[in-house]
Write a protein that binds this DNA or RNA. Structure first.
Lengths: 144, 144
DNA sequence: AATAAAAAAGATTTTTTTGTCTTAAATAAA
DNA sequence: TTTATTTAAGACAAAAAAATCTTTTTTATT
């Protein structure tokens, strides 16, 4: 469904969001441990997330990652997926046709319509903060 | 969603199924042209589909591929996906956790539940013959 | 029996994805 | 101002996926 990079990116962001609930800034070593991911690879992905303004980073001692403080905009799952994997999951054709639409549909176009729409809806409405709260409550997990 | 191999595999099977409606056996060159896929790579994928008993092949002049004649069992989309990509799409965790279930869920586990279930249902119930008929009627396409 | 056409098998190459390593830049604290 | 700690950047390496090439096997036709 998602690339490994995207999976790690979502998990990392969720961990940062959880810690940000308590004003904690976290470094890459801690993130990689918390989500059980390869540290150097995760660091690369964090660079993308910082550039896409999904998380904020601070260099130097006591530095690390935290959610943007602006607070005004709550990040949605959709933004992470778009930043890392692009929007092919819910825009591209299920069978890989370059052109696939109502007028020129692939054989499964209408069968996929509902599913893709539900997926898009879910990604666009699910907020990171919402999910982070479940982690904080201990009713959801980021590894194993 | 699916790998390239799986996309080509589905499209190839659909083309063969369409031609089998009219008792036509087709060779790999014709298939690759019809579905706009790399010929040699498609040939490799056909080998998997033959081994998985999704299509039938005949060697030698006038040989090629056709659907199994048994007729008793109508191939479902699900069988092709399982043969090529495995069942990770609707069984594996959306965030890549090794263990993810009701008792130990990832943060999006319950958000994904419906979508994955719908996808599984769709793949398990959609028949290749059904889709092939749409191709035959000219209301669905396998390229562009 | 020889030839030609087709799939099967296996080796190889290319591209993409995943992952690592090294150096540079920033910055807090001693 | 030096040192230590952190992210950023970029080069590099390994593994997987996508794609190709070559040889073998099968079989219909001449």
């Amino acid at each position: 469904m998602f690339s490994k990079a995207c999976e790690y990116g979502i998990r990392a962001t969720l961990y940062i969001a959880e810690q940000s609930l308590n004003q904690r800034r976290v470094n890459i070593r801690e993130i990689a441990k918390a989500i059980d991911s390869p540290e150097a690879f995760t660091a690369k992905i964090m660079q993308q997330l910082v550039k896409s303004q999904i998380v904020h980073s601070v260099k130097g001692p006591l530095g690390g990652f935290e959610m943007l403080r602006s607070g005004s905009h709550d990040i949605k799952l959709y933004q992470i997926v778009k930043a890392i994997d692009g929007d092919n999951i819910y825009k591209g054709c299920g069978l890989g046709l370059k052109e696939c639409n109502e007028e020129h549909p692939c054989p499964v176009h209408f069968k996929f319509l509902n599913i893709r729409e539900e997926l898009r809806e879910m990604l666009e409405t699910t907020s990171i903060t919402e999910l982070a709260k479940d982690l904080d409550k201990g009713i959801a997990f980021l590894k194993q």
